[in-house]
Design a binder for these strands. Structure first.
Lengths: 193, 193
DNA sequence: GCCTGTCAATACGCATGCGTATGGAAACTA
DNA sequence: TAGTTTCCATACGCATGCGTATTGACAGGC
């Protein structure tokens, strides 16, 4: 039974894309600092001799992986939700996405904790900008004036970021009903009536 | 001119408290990972031979420093604000404290980014619990029922945490007036009228 | 003035991480 | 089948961080 931690067996030979995906998986699980060459290689069942054929440096891998994530995050999360016409329902759906903690959100949470690093900061900055604009538009369509919509969007996004950070240590661990009630209040507070 | 980064000159001989304070300073500036024995010793103008006389291990220092911070954070931030009688004004004052980014908040922001570490998680957990209770009480006094007060407090605290995290990369860097307007909306949204 | 306890310097061993160099095996190509 | 390209293993050098061991300097108590 060869199962140390995950999958220490190389299917065949590796591609750069495989390294990038593995980096994102590890990133989501254990944070940016854990994305190191040797551990990744062990996980893929090879040695770092392989890695340095595909990438010049560790930062190059990180950069490529982040670009991959940023692309997929946009098209997987925001774009589908844009189809929802009612702005209240759209925001509700956005929040619901978060609660289900898809892999993309785990990556986001991990990146938030490494905002200070030069490779990470700009990514979060761009993603945040787009998301806040997305929510601002929803609020405008819900009838708020521009300034109010912007501030409510900032508040909503900050609350989202804070929630993502605090969720793993949430005190008595909210159950499903409590969470639904919280979301109801969340929406009601941000978009009254 | 012996000034490399800060103060590489030992006043005399060091105490454990001096190490703890230096650890908190470095923590606030560069995060938990930066709190390493040799860099700290350099900063204090000694070598690690000194450190291991005062502390058995690096984690022991971190633990002591965190206890020190947790104590002072309670008495410096929450307790003084409890004196403010009007709940709206109390929350407003709490938020204002954050905006001025006192050292204690820089420590908090750094700790948030290391929530996964076993020494950090419980500290943030306790501090968050107390703060959320504090805000929940304010909302109750403002006339909300228990469940609503709790959810609004969660939302407010999440927004606070998110704001602290995002502030360093805030897009066009809010100016003072914009920030004041944001705070006004923040209060208005959370405690209408 | 000695002696003991307090604080610190130096030197070491060990681990982990990055990146390089070089050689080998497997796969594709001609 | 011979040769080239692609992918990977092994071994090394270097840096940083933790913790230990040993020795030294300087204080105060006697």
């Amino acid at each position: 039974m060869p199962a140390l931690t995950s999958k220490p067996v190389p299917k065949s030979r590796l591609s750069a894309a495989a390294w990038e995906q593995a980096a994102l998986d590890l990133l989501a699980e254990s944070g940016v600092a854990a994305v190191a060459v040797e551990p990744l290689a062990r996980r893929l069942g090879v040695t770092k001799g392989s890695f340095y054929w595909h990438f010049a440096t560790r930062d190059a891998l990180l950069k490529a992986a982040l670009e991959r994530w940023e692309r997929s995050d946009d098209s997987d999360v925001l774009t589908p939700i844009e189809a929802v016409s009612d702005p209240r329902e759209r925001v509700r759906e956005l929040i619901r996405q978060v609660s289900y903690r898809r892999p993309s959100h785990a990556v986001f949470a991990a990146l938030l904790r490494a905002l200070d690093q030069p490779l990470i900061g700009p990514v979060i900055e761009r993603v945040s900008q787009r998301r806040i604009e997305f929510v601002t538009n929803a609020f405008r369509q819900a009838g708020f004036d521009d300034a109010t919509a912007a501030n409510r969007a900032r508040l909503a996004y900050s609350a989202y970021v804070g929630f993502v950070q605090l969720a793993p240590i949430a005190q008595p661990r909210m159950n499903h009903d409590e969470f639904e009630a919280y979301i109801r209040d969340f929406i009601e507070i941000l978009i009254p009536h």
